[in-house]
Design a protein around this nucleic acid. Structure first.
Lengths: 197, 197, 197, 197
DNA sequence: CTCTAACCGAGACGGTACGTCTCGTCTTTTG
DNA sequence: CAAAAGACGAGACGTACCGTCTCGGTTAGAG
């Protein structure tokens, strides 16, 4: 959708990178300012100085624009060093995630996840570009833990991943309790104790 | 919102219970048939043979109607017996929940939770009338577990609750992996092993 | 479409006469100011302080609104007295018509007739509400002429009507030559001489 | 506009005649198939396998293309012989015209005349290239009639021309009555009787 | 036999208006 | 006097064409 690195010159006027960025910036601004509800295609087009058709040309729905805009602002799949301790590594990852989620980025992510429940294409994009890359990092850490003997080898890794991330997103979306550092620390400690040999 | 039990005869024509039920039935039908997106106020009014104003009179938003309709169809806070084993009790509760979530009711609940991210009043209602009652039941079970010495007394109960329900709702909303019985069983076993003394 | 005089009170909020008039006035203003091209539904709605849906509710197309607006401003089927002379009576009618057509009303009528070529519903309305009533008046005059013996009884009245009005509308639409009084006078004289006994 | 006969070879690639014809053929096809409304610049370009810019390069508006396309298909200023009788000569011309107008060509001409009411450049082209050439032929016939003494010398020729062609175009555009041969015959007879000495 | 000017296709783009949808409010008549 | 019927203003939706603007590539006469 935007990662085209095709250098083989195609006929016709090439897509304007300036326009693409203007749209993403405008959408991100609106998203952060007033949330998803106000980030309408019309508002984005107006703010970016762009025609609606141009947006529809490249994105199938406003949800898709919103996600791209969100990634444009917040995406950075931080790579964490191997500390030698599974608990510490996972805790680092979770603390980093909830740090992001405590701010405006968390509210917007909640809205995007919410919208994804009504739009399966959006759901797909979120899974592929947001959730999976983060799970992949944690999967590697858990794998190392198993190899080191810190984690039982008969556990199902995907279940453990859900035990870690499920509660985080649950707190994000239900707002029953805050995403505090204490929560993260106890969560990871409990989970890993539960899968220790 | 709909549970008014005011029996003190007020002047004027009393609220029609028939109308209230017609609205809830219509909303539930639409919700199950085509999901939240199609359960518009206009569609509900048309199907219930009721005027839009009547709906607005008693519910503040279509999300509120949807939730009432959902509860009208699915709400039954099953009370589970004390089996003597914390793992078994919690497992029973979780299995019962995901059994519900595997059907159409799960898809609709996901949509409602999604919509709640864009509507804080909805979020409130979901917390109060859906999430909290179920957590209360599990809290009691966990409490018994602590008293029996099956669970360490220094754990934070709310964190454990999130460890149990977070993964369930996470799978419901992300659809990364299925809500299978095996998942539920391993999840509860892992969690409780993690908080065992 | 707008001439409903149904007094049998129907349920529901009645159509707002104020709104109807606001739409017609706005459309007429725009029509006279910048012509048909500028009298878009959006512009009419904006000027009348009315929603587009309300316009679409009562008129099927902007052409239909334009015609109603035109009639709202210009419609007055003047009845002419019987002078005793067919030539004088027809000349009076034609002079009166071209008098109207020489002004802005003529340009707008030309545009409406033009638009009617692309919209058969419009064409229908123009025939029924504009052309036919005027032809009916002239038909009566010609009939009197036949009875008096001023016109041959074997002529086809519709052909004579076309001989009178055809050239008028032809000049209106082609602008080859002006709609002068001299033209009208010579036209009617020639035509009636051609059908004299 | 398209009849450039400039043979003085200019530098650069010359205009492609193949392209010009492809555009006219495509436009004519669309015009006959679905009428003026569907003969959009985009549709013509797509059907001709030509870029929009190329069309805009050579024609100022879609109306202009449409007229050129119409002429490309239908234009043939038939020259009629002098039969010695003014009535017969004019009748021949009118019968030939309405013969054309009774088919699809008539509907398209009506649409073009309609569109010309909203586009003065179009109006100009229609006058110059369609109406005037035909009037010139009839003017010659009428002139001969005056010289022969069949027509009074004090009549205004342009008025008589309007008396002949006005009713034809009036019937074409209003569709009040059909363009039958009987109509044409009676029309011409009446008109010429009206200007006989 | 290259240079260069014009032509041409493909297609991106800003813009205007379209006709539709749903919302939440308002205004009547009916039971 | 509640409820139904339905008119209404507001505003976003997604689409259709418009006319303009790059691009890359072609085509021919002029140097």
């Amino acid at each position: 959708m935007s990662e085209d690195a095709i250098s083989t010159a195609r006929p016709g006027r090439p897509r304007s990178e300036k326009t693409r960025l203007a749209i993403l910036e405008a959408a991100a601004d609106l998203l952060l300012a007033n949330g998803f509800a106000d980030a309408t295609i019309e508002a984005i087009a107006a703010r970016a100085g762009v025609s609606k058709v141009t947006i529809y040309k490249w994105w199938p729905s406003r949800g898709a624009v919103a996600i791209d805009a969100y990634f444009h602002r917040f995406l950075q799949t931080t790579v964490f060093p191997d500390s030698g301790s599974t608990v510490d590594d996972i805790t680092s990852q979770v603390l980093h995630l909830i740090e992001t989620f405590r701010g405006r980025a968390g509210e917007v992510m909640a809205e995007l996840l919410g919208q994804a429940q009504l739009d399966s294409a959006l759901s797909e994009v979120l899974r592929e570009r947001w959730l999976q890359p983060r799970r992949a990092l944690s999967t590697a850490v858990l794998q190392r833990g198993i190899e080191r003997g810190e984690i039982r080898s008969d556990v199902t890794v995907t279940v453990v991943l859900d035990e870690i991330y499920g509660p985080v997103y649950f707190r994000l979306m239900t707002r029953l309790h805050p995403l505090s550092d204490e929560f993260a620390t106890e969560l990871v400690r409990n989970v890993l104790r539960g899968v220790a040999p």
